[in-house]
Simulated assay, not measured.
Amino acid sequence: MTYNDTTPPAPLHAAPATRLDLAGDVAELAAALMDIESVSGNEAALADAVEAALRALPHLDVTRNGDAVVARTALGRAERVILAGHIDTVPLPTVPGSRGTVPSSWDGEVLYGRGATDMKGGVAVQLAIAATVTEPCKDITFIFYDHEEVAASKSGLGRLVREHRELLDATFGILLEPTNGTVEGGCNGTIRLEATTHGLAAHSARAWMGENAIHAAAPILARLAAYQPATVTVDGLDYRESMNVVRIHGGTAGNVIPDACVVEINYRFAPDKSPAQAEAHVRELLSGFELVCTDSSAGARPGLNSPAAASFVAAVGREPLPKYGWTDVARLGEIGIPAVNFGPGDPLLAHSDNEHVAADDIRACLAALSRWLG
């Protein structure tokens, strides 16, 4: 789940060389993954450990690209599915006493630490399946990739699409993002635009000599405050939209009337729309204002229409839900691979100072995927 569009600060920990035990308890494996700090930009140590563990499995063909690792079975099955997950995390918390940090810690059967939900619990499930489901009914491509939590241009999955597209051929994909163990289909798209208002600078003691650009932005805020977001049904799932101001820049000093103000707007739109349609919707709402699109990512339709998806939903045994946030199922959808989200942990805990996951939730996800693949 993307964190922001900035490069995080330098890593706080140097990860030790670690040998991962893929055949033991998958929850303990998740803890071992969490103990290797991998804030975006510092994934190398974890990628090394993942690569070494996978190369020790003779039934897999392994490829390393930067800090992304791809492992594939080659059993000649009629279908091939992708199990994908990112190995990076958002920066560590700075609040003293936070439990969402590195190394991990246990409180009974609950695992605390950075990456517990987003998404080293899911990565542990991938690795456990790679080691234990050696004769799956479908061929499997395992993808472990870097730089998901930063700008989309840095994405390791995007780099694999550009440089090793042949490794990603599949009929269906599962992204092991946290979903509380429920299949979540597709994802909303996201677009950011900046609305700029202009004024005339003056000394604030003689304000009548200037024009206040921040005041000129008030109608933008009023329109967005009054905006009623839609809920859109796409292939049987209801996607909730939202449009919000997420940042405002303006002013130069405490005694100067501001001559410019920039209002940053984030629109999360249902996957029935393209980014171009989403941008047109924002422009219509804010007609009369100067708008510049700074970033956009298409959503993904639910991906539940294929036989593989139907059999997977049946194996999980729960009604599927929509994914409201943006995830990399959209990247798979763009290259023609229907995909869903499914993984352990509560997505509302992702990136929090209290990030945690129940050990039994990790084990249950492993059991569901093993049933389906076995």
Rank of each mutant, 00 (worst) to 15 (best):
E166P: 03
S153D: 01
V125A: 13
S204G: 05
C187G: 03
C137W: 07
I140L: 07
A205W: 04
R165A: 10
R192K: 14
L224T: 13
G173A: 01
V123P: 10
L160Q: 01
T190M: 14
H164M: 06
H147N: 15
L168R: 12
D107N: 07
L175A: 10
P136Y: 00
Y112I: 00
G115E: 01
F144E: 02
V183G: 04
A124S: 13
L167V: 14
V161M: 10
T182W: 03
L176N: 01
K138H: 13
K138E: 09
E177D: 02
M119V: 09
A170H: 06
W208R: 09
R206G: 02
W106T: 02
R223G: 12
G108K: 00
T117D: 03
R206K: 03
L157N: 02
R165H: 07
D107L: 04
I214K: 05
E163F: 08
N212E: 06
T134G: 02
G115W: 05
Y145K: 10
V183F: 04
I220S: 12
R162Q: 08
L200I: 15
A170L: 05
A205K: 06
G186K: 07
L221Q: 13
S105V: 08
P178G: 02
A222E: 15
T190A: 15
H203A: 08
S105K: 04
G199K: 05
D107K: 11
K154E: 14
A226T: 14
S204I: 10
G121F: 11
A116C: 09
E194L: 14
H215Q: 12
W106A: 02
E184W: 06
D146C: 15
K154V: 11
S204M: 08
I214A: 02
C187P: 09
A170K: 11
N180H: 03
D139W: 00
V102R: 05
D139G: 04
F144R: 08
A131F: 00
L224R: 11
V183I: 07
L111N: 03
G189I: 07
H215V: 15
A195H: 11
L175D: 05
C187Q: 06
E211G: 09
W106E: 00
V102K: 05
E148H: 11
K154I: 06
I140E: 05
H198C: 13
